[in-house]
Design a binder for these strands. Sequence first.
DNA 1: GCCGTTTTCGGCCCGACTGTTTTCAGTCG
Length: 570
Amino acid sequence: MQNSEISRLFDDLADLLEIDGANAFRLRAYRNAARLISDLPEPMADIVADSERSPDELSGIGKDLAKKIVTIVETGSLPQLEEMQEKIPAGVVDMLRLPGLGPKKAAVLFHDLSITNLDELKAAAEQGQIHSLKGFGKKTETSILEGLARAQESIGRVFLADAKPQADAIVDSLAKLPSVKQISTAGSLRRRRETVGDLDVLITADDSTEPMNALAEHELIEQVLARGDTKQRVRLRSGLEMDLRVVPEESYGAALQYFTGSKDHNIVIRRRAQDRGLKINEYGVYRGDESIAGRTEEDVYAAVDLPWIPPELREDRGEIERAENNALPTLIELSDIRGDLHMHTTATDGTATIAEMAAAAKARKLKYIAITDHSKRVTMAGGLDADRLRAHWKEIEKVNAATSGIEILRGIECDILEDATLDLPDDVLAEADWVIAVLHYGLKQPQAQIHERLLTAIKNPHVNIIGHPTGRLIGKRPGAEMNISEILKAAADHGVMMEINAHPSRLDLNDTSAAAAKDLKIPIVISTDAHAVTGFDVLQYGIYQARRAGLEKKDVANTRTWAQFKKLLR
DNA sequence: GCCGTTTTCGGCCCGACTGTTTTCAGTCG
């Protein structure tokens, strides 16, 4: 039982208890425990197995939660959760994903209208049954329908960061089988799209029996949905579905190219083949009946006179023309990154101290970090006013002086307020090493107002970068309305950098906007926004997004040393 | 639910906004 799975059970239970109207502090205890467990650097199962130790040695875990954790580790399930699931249908929990619907409203819809899933919710909203409920109105009804429309687009898609570890675990175990020669993921996961609909895995093997049996029995697999000689479809415990394809060695490259996509990219490639009197399918490249390529992807691309194209670029967004002109970028790698310039500590809503974050960053071979806690507007996080910020900076200086091997910079994540002023005065911002300006609130304002806010920040001489520029949360919230290219032009004019926030639910800027920023020669900074020492782990997903944008090492400012980086600051 | 303790139960980060209401509950971060 993984920490993430234990954490998930507590989060699920908290959702259900919330709809059930449980005490808010009890919920907090469950959610704290869930976060604590998922951030825990060692497996909870190890603590349970150790007779000298118990989960309640962790602050935030008491006798009751410790008992539940032991139950989960030993039996794989939590009786209280199952009881609650009997009481409240899963579809009611789904309603919480819609913006504007929280636990109280979901409970009213469930109890008063007997709505148990999103389909029934849609029908009720369309029939106008909702606006007459107490506490609801016309606007709520409309926003429910809008939220449902958006939720349906992203249904079944999960964050790359959730899908990839599962795919990797399966690939790793299948790769160890004696009969398996080659193995790779394909599809949107291989292209590192920010969300993934299902998993595709390709193998070459002498015989499909062993890998298919092994997959059927893999601990992550819940059910085999279909099985033939060359293709098996399974459902994972997480709900994701996966196709395993067994192909002959002479077709591996062709199949990998075919199943990696994207569809649009492949259409252009196949058209090139036609122009050359060739035919490409998942088995190979053919001239008439004769196979002329297919063993490797390089061979397939070479057959249409192209160099191999990195999967992240295969979206028919100009990569084929670039390949033809030998102008493909050398994409940035995780190991190119030298510093991380966005993170939080216990001063606001982080879980680790300055020193702990610095040590964790150093262990990841980073040479510099900026501590960028929240400004005072973010009250829930205990955001810093000028006095507390200056005291915090003193503390950072102290830790920096006492630490070797990594430079710790004094930063701030300063809110751009709804009235287009900054949350801290200029004389304070002027003292910082690094100022990130961000929108957190009022994201629904009209575009003109959003622009005014962003332009105010961009024009402020102390602002170095705009953090998570759109404020989107993938699959949940679309981000503020803006003309991003206009904002980027202003940033380019004023020497303001742009962030790719690496958090899997943000990845903001997205791939296309980051590519646009590159075209304007805006230095891009890939940041983790870490709120815990484990928060640095998401850096990889920021790199994937940057690769999809075609970014090279030189396009990303935090691949430089801090001394070099400083020269980019205005 | 947890914690700390004045060892038995009270306190636990909360301010702004929205849409509802006509003084505020629910949602958000």
